[in-house]
Amino acid sequence: MNKNATFSMPIPVRRALRKLGRDIHDARMRRRIPAAVLAERASISRTTLVKVEKGEAGVSIGIYATVLFVLGLVDRLGELADVRNDPRGLELDEERLPQRIRRSSSTKRTPDK
């Protein structure tokens, strides 16, 4: 991704990527894994790992996911857009629920004779 594309990115997105990068760096440090070792385990270059830890937008999500896997944190990635973590989506679904439900004519009960 070129620099101009990064600047057109919304500020909250850039902040979130920088935070992700810092969190990945902190997780690596807490585990006492040298950068070279993490890069090797993730099959990426040391330069790419530096970009990940800076939260650069030009790095593919697959590389971020691989680094998280090496750190043992990949499970949480799959939960990012999970419906249970989407209160706004759940609210919108509730708004579309019917006010009442009518029985179809084929399921209406007939009086017993």
Rank of each mutant, 00 (worst) to 15 (best):
1 M>P: 02
2 N>A: 04
3 K>Q: 07
4 N>V: 09
4 N>R: 04
5 A>H: 08
6 T>A: 02
7 F>Y: 10
7 F>E: 09
8 S>D: 10
9 M>E: 09
9 M>K: 07
10 P>S: 08
10 P>K: 03
11 I>M: 04
11 I>G: 01
11 I>E: 11
11 I>W: 05
12 P>S: 06
13 V>K: 06
15 R>G: 01
15 R>T: 11
17 L>E: 02
17 L>G: 02
21 G>R: 01
22 R>C: 05
22 R>S: 14
26 D>V: 13
27 A>D: 06
28 R>T: 03
31 R>W: 05
33 I>N: 00
35 A>D: 02
35 A>S: 09
36 A>T: 14
37 V>T: 12
38 L>W: 12
40 E>H: 10
40 E>V: 08
41 R>M: 09
44 I>P: 03
46 R>N: 13
46 R>M: 12
50 V>K: 02
53 E>W: 10
54 K>A: 14
55 G>H: 01
55 G>L: 06
55 G>D: 03
60 S>M: 08
61 I>D: 02
62 G>C: 04
62 G>N: 14
63 I>T: 15
64 Y>I: 04
64 Y>C: 05
65 A>F: 13
66 T>I: 05
67 V>E: 00
68 L>E: 09
69 F>M: 04
69 F>C: 07
70 V>E: 15
71 L>F: 05
71 L>D: 01
74 V>Q: 08
76 R>D: 15
77 L>Y: 12
79 E>R: 10
82 D>Q: 06
82 D>G: 03
83 V>C: 05
87 P>G: 02
88 R>G: 05
89 G>L: 12
89 G>N: 01
90 L>Y: 00
95 E>W: 05
96 R>F: 06
97 L>N: 04
98 P>Y: 10
98 P>E: 03
99 Q>E: 15
99 Q>G: 13
101 I>G: 01
101 I>N: 01
102 R>Q: 10
103 R>G: 12
105 S>T: 12
106 S>W: 09
107 T>G: 02
108 K>S: 06
108 K>P: 00
110 T>V: 08
112 D>R: 08
